[in-house]
Design a protein around this nucleic acid. Structure first.
Lengths: 198, 198
DNA sequence: CCCCCTATTGAACGGGGTTCATAATAGCAG
DNA sequence: CTGCTATTATGAACCCCGTTCAATAGGGGG
């Protein structure tokens, strides 16, 4: 049985990801401890490092799953949205907001994980990000039919960043808590105003 | 001399803030070490804790200074800006971008410091934030004369958050580096579109 | 059944924030 | 000036944490 070790390791790997995901979701990225993971998984402390290079690798694995769920939520919202491209943008952005609010710690972990300086973002990150951008870009192309693809890419990035900023600061504790409705209003304001004058 | 101790402590306090500021500016928040601070300041390790509750308190003091410099830069840009309110918004937002790019680590520290959960943001934070919001709110009131103050506050927050999001993701390493010009373009796009249809 | 090679283990390492028993010092009374 | 005491400063020690690696356990082929 040549694959016996690989099999056992793969099982541990999956197990660790699930456990880390739960921990991050409930207590946040900064509450993740190697020793907790090991004891929760019933494995040795060192076993973690047979399967992952370091804790950051586990966080990246969790983030990949989180990002995927986020993409699915946005896609689901888009599927239920009306045909109007502006409404589609609003619905997707509010789905983004809802996901962030309902998965606050996991969502924050997407951005709080510190990458080694100079290290490129992982493939899955660029892929999921591209997916999100595509969801935004399509309705935008309908609203702004005369823009070339380069301009459209800039518009897409600008809109995503704006919505992200509104959600980020809105959910941030420092602002003493912006009501959820206000966040949705701001999102709708920005998107409607932005798309009102093609 | 009753004030002798207080004087010495105040000097150490200021000294530590300056040293921490330099360290954060050059190497980022995560490079701040209590032992480095003590040796750079020529004081005992424990002396830090005679003057600050913990390292986070030093970071907050540095952040207060950073926020103040940021406010001054934005105000200076506003002073040199044309009378047109829309241009004023664009100029201020690009000053925000310039400040963030030129003081990347210090600027990131403003948002990366982790507040104890449930603890309110410090007064100076709310005050400087209010100042920034006022700078934005004034031109906005000219562009949207018919909105009531509550709506205006929402617009203000939405615009600030949008610009912040564009700068944040634009300067983030994960995006493989958005060119500075593109960031300025996105800022101008959002602000001009947003204000184009009162 | 035994041997050897690989995988697993968890004690130990290094580094970092914070504390606290101790040493130094400053203020004051005689 | 000299003790004496209360206050302040000091840095070794404590605890926590990620990571490593010498030692142990395991298992497959002869």
């Amino acid at each position: 049985m040549a694959g016996k070790v690989a099999e056992r390791r793969a099982a541990l790997r999956d197990n660790l990801i699930i456990i880390a995901e739960k921990r991050i979701a409930s207590d946040g990225l900064s509450a993740l401890r190697a020793r907790d993971l090991a004891s929760d998984a019933g494995c040795a402390l060192g076993a973690i490092y047979n399967v992952f290079g370091d804790l950051t690798d586990i966080v990246l694995a969790v983030n990949a799953r989180t990002f995927h769920r986020l993409g699915a939520d946005v896609a689901a919202a888009l599927a239920d949205a009306p045909q109007d491209p502006i409404e589609q943008l609003v619905v997707m952005a509010q789905a983004y907001h809802q996901f962030a609010a309902a998965n606050l710690h996991s969502w924050r972990a997407l951005f709080d994980v510190e990458r080694a300086p100079g290290e490129a973002a992982p493939d899955w990150y660029l892929h999921e990000m591209g997916q999100l951008f595509a969801y935004i870009s399509d309705p935008l192309a309908v609203v702004f039919p005369n823009r070339d693809p380069q301009e459209l890419a800039l518009l897409t990035r600008a809109l995503f960043s704006s919505v992200h900023g509104i959600v980020l600061l809105g959910l941030d504790g420092a602002s003493a808590g912006v009501p959820s409705d206000d966040i949705d209003k701001m999102i709708a304001l920005i998107l409607r105003q932005f798309t009102s004058n093609p």
